[in-house]
């Protein structure tokens, strides 16, 4: 059974192919980590899945529907997919509560009282109950990113995309964001994460994919990829990460 099927996806920017025939299946409740050097195409792949970019060949299916069909309703597709960005991208003119309830209220037509109640429950669950009325600029980076995660899951998406959600954070704040992601895995959320946190990737993923120059070079269980990578490029990459002290 597959929730998301990526088939031979190509993405070109001007003279450069950034994704070169990516194939990837994601099962319900599966957590997939995308690893690879900066510029290897991790963000682009996530943005293609969320239709923030249009692909140049191939197809992407969600729950059996082709979402890359040119006639597909992009807003309808995005209702079913949540995304969290490296730079949080909270709405600075809205309180934490309004950031979280905006999509439930305006897109999913939940009434305000119900939306706020659900947001309150999520905030409490992730230790942010006292921040509901704050504006984003009054929060630490870690808190902002946790709010961004809550905002993305408040609409109960089928799939959550996380793009290097801890890269902009001080090391000390990384843990609080990673723990919320771990908790989401326990609730059965299907996730694709682009990450540089190799320990975390090893710990949380069901499948690790190594991207190199827009090609999905190697995939497998975390043990397989981190302990006995087959491809020399994967070994090279992991060695560099190891040298940099990040594994």
């Amino acid at each position: 059974m597959t929730l998301l099927r990526i088939e031979g996806v190509w993405k070109n920017y001007r003279h450069q192919s950034v994704l070169r025939g990516i194939d990837l299946d994601v099962a319900p409740h599966e957590v997939v980590c995308l690893i690879g050097a900066s510029g290897s195409g991790k963000s682009t792949l996530l943005r293609c899945v969320n239709l923030l970019e249009t692909i140049d060949d191939g197809a992407i299916h969600l729950d059996g529907d082709e979402i890359t069909d040119v006639r597909a309703d992009v807003d309808e597709v995005r209702k079913r997919i949540g995304m969290v960005f490296q730079s949080y991208n909270l709405f600075p003119h809205m309180t934490v509560l309004d950031n979280i309830t905006l999509a439930p209220r305006k897109v999913h037509k939940v009434d305000r009282a119900r939306a706020e109640e659900q947001a309150g429950e999520l905030l409490a669950r992730f230790g942010l109950a006292d921040k509901a009325g704050e504006y984003p600029d009054r929060l630490s980076g870690g808190q902002q990113q946790r709010v961004a995660v809550i905002r993305a899951i408040a609409t109960q998406p089928r799939l959550l995309l996380l793009d290097e959600v801890t890269s902009a954070l001080d090391p000390i704040l990384v843990t609080e964001v990673l723990s919320i992601i771990r908790e989401l895995k326990d609730t059965g959320m299907t996730m694709i994460l682009a990450t540089h946190e190799m320990n975390f990737a090893r710990d949380i993923s069901d499948t690790v994919c190594f991207l190199d120059g827009g090609v999905l070079l190697e995939r497998g269980s975390p043990e397989q990829i981190f302990s006995s990578p087959e491809h020399p490029r994967t070994r090279e990459f992991l060695q560099r990460v190891l040298d940099a002290g990040r594994l």
Binding site: L52, K79, L90, K106, T155
Partner: peptide
């Protein structure tokens, strides 16, 4: 533009993203 990307990724239409974000 990242503000628009965030709004659209939540399922808001172009008009809604304009109006609310």
């Amino acid at each position: 533009p990242s503000q628009i990307a965030a709004a659209r990724s939540l399922g808001l239409s172009h008009g809604q993203a304009m109006r609310h974000v």
